[in-house]
Write a protein that binds this DNA or RNA. Structure first.
Length: 472
RNA sequence: UCCCGCGUAGCUCAGUUGGUUAGAGCACCUGACUGUUAAUCAGGGUGUCGUAGGUUCGAGUCCUACCGCGGGAGCCA
């Protein structure tokens, strides 16, 4: 007899989508969601294999040789292989079902009473404590598929437009990027740290012979390839050691950073808009079942706001205009509004959620509150920076045109209290055939949050890392 | 790091101005019923009330510290 495990698998998605005609044989492999017994001599098993949102209904009759001993003991989470025939379902709730002529139990649930993922509503907080089992729930299965689809769409978008994917390093030795606190990468013995004659830690004894960290951004590195391949992007893990306890910060997250040559801020804004619209369009088309679930159970506007997003053009305003709007607002601010100070969360929320009601692009910020590499505008007081703000999340994209003029860049580095000597290879790009260029960073998890309506960023990445928490 | 909140059964939660033996739903088991689909109905047992102190005749309830979690702020994507 053939081992049922080795039989070719029919995906639930193919059966439910009608790609397997009624009357055809099928072998389903998956995990039990629920089992309902009928005294008419049959059991209904909802079998899930992750290929789509819905499980498939398996009808198992008591004529099966192992009905009493095994089928009746299947509980949520148990795995099995079902051989049977695809049949149009006489019951409501599904178009087709599987009439089983064999149910092979592969793995039972050891103690059904304490199985952590029961077929009921769990809190997300609780499910984080069983991160190894939460992908078996509707929500986390849907998020996994959305995450995959968006990842693929990111690469497809850039590939279709001639961008090259550059694998920028995870380990960096430039500790002056100024994008946040860094995780140190070291093999030094913490209990016996080598010291210099001055008593400082001697990093020349360390693995790389110098200070090393996990990257906080691939931007500086990807700029080098931009200055040779024109249109490039990075997409990979990024690390911030900030002690942030919020629903939109992770210590380890994924970031997408395109960089385009011979381009200014307007071109960058257009790219950001095309990019987001493309991603959401793909999501609406390819993950219709999962998005319907998010709209039904997580965020009622999940689908409609993406549809509107794809249809409408971005609202654009300068930082100066934004400050004018905030100052004119009939509102008491916890933090004062004034030209020259950064926009606070309450300010961004007002602009996005109340004043405009959809994502907003804010451009041309005061140079004092932005990074050294952003291109100085002709007014001498602002830089060509751009933030895309989204309702409920805040900053989803941050970017800028880069300073391509060496003398201006050096001046900005010094103004920030930094030393041009530390930026040798970055300055070289301005010495050898410099061109205007621009780029932005998109937090992938924040994109997923916005797309699905999930409130906490820890629930849109499989194994979240946050301060004090790196289980699993 | 700062501010606020929470911690009671495997899970989700209730528990009054401090007062006898700690409550419900889900899950699980048994039975009834049923082409069922969050099935329904009846029955069954369940706890270091986060930890350690303190106040009190008496603490799940009040106080202190600590631990854990969550929300907000800052920082940012």
């Amino acid at each position: 007899m053939t081992d049922p495990i080795s039989l070719p698998r029919t995906r639930v998605a193919d059966v439910l989508a009608g790609r397997v005609a009624p009357g055809e044989r099928a072998v389903l492999k998956g995990w039990v969601r629920t089992r309902r017994d009928s005294k008419a001599g049959l059991s209904f098993i909802n079998l899930h294999d992750g290929s789509c949102f819905d499980p498939i209904q398996v009808v198992a009759k008591n004529e099966l040789p192992n009905y009493e001993e095994e089928v009746l003991h299947l509980t949520s989470g148990a795995s099995c292989v079902v051989e049977g025939t695809v049949v149009e379902s006489p019951g409501r709730g599904q178009s087709v079902e599987i009439h089983a002529d064999a149910v092979h139990v592969v793995g039972l649930v050891e103690d059904p009473e304490t199985y952590p993922v029961q077929p009921k509503r769990h809190s997300f907080e609780y499910l984080r404590t069983v991160a190894h089992l939460r992908p078996r729930t509707n929500t986390f299965g849907a998020i996994a598929r959305v995450r995959h689809t968006l990842s693929q769409a990111v690469h497809r978008f850039f590939d279709e437009r001639g961008f090259y994917w550059i694998h920028t390093p995870i380990i960096t030795t430039s500790d002056a990027e100024g994008a946040g606190e860094l995780f140190r990468v070291s093999t030094l013995d913490l209990l016996n740290v080598p010291r210099t004659e001055e008593g400082e830690v001697d990093f020349s004894e360390d693995f790389f012979g110098r200070n090393a960290f996990l990257t906080v951004s691939g931007q500086l590195n990807v700029e080098t390839y931009c200055q040779a391949l024109s249109d490039v992007y990075t997409f990979g893990p990024t690390f911030r050691a900030e002690n942030s306890h919020t629903s939109r910060h992770l210590s380890e997250f994924w970031m997408i950073e395109p960089e385009i040559a011979f381009a200014d801020l307007d071109a960058l804004a257009a790219l950001a808009e095309d990019f987001l619209k493309y991603l959401f369009q793909v999501l609406l088309e390819e993950r219709e079942d999962d998005m319907a679930f998010f709209a039904e159970r997580i965020e009622p506007e999940a689908v409609t706001r993406l549809e509107q997003f794809v249809e409408s053009s971005f609202e654009r305003m300068t930082y100066t205009q934004a400050v004018d709007i905030l100052e004119a607002a009939d509102r008491k601010w916890e933090f004062p509004v004034g030209w020259g100070t950064d926009l606070q969360s309450e300010h961004e929320r007002y602009l996005v959620e109340e004043h405009v009601g959809r994502p907003v692009v804010v451009t041309d910020y005061p140079k004092e509150i932005k990074a050294f590499y952003m291109r100085q505008n002709d007014d001498g007081r602002t830089v060509a920076a751009l933030d895309v703000l989204a309702p409920g999340i805040g900053e989803i994209i941050g970017g800028s045109q880069r300073e391509e003029r060496l003398e201006v860049l050096d001046q900005r580095i010094r103004e920030m209290g930094l030393d041009p000597v530390d930026y040798g290879w970055y300055r070289d790009l301005r010495r050898y055939g410099t061109v205007p260029h621009a780029g932005f960073g998109l937090g992938f998890e924040r994109l997923i949050q916005y797309a699905t309506g999930m409130a906490n960023i820890r629930d849109v990445i499989p194994f979240p890392r946050t301060p004090g928490s790196a289980a699993f």
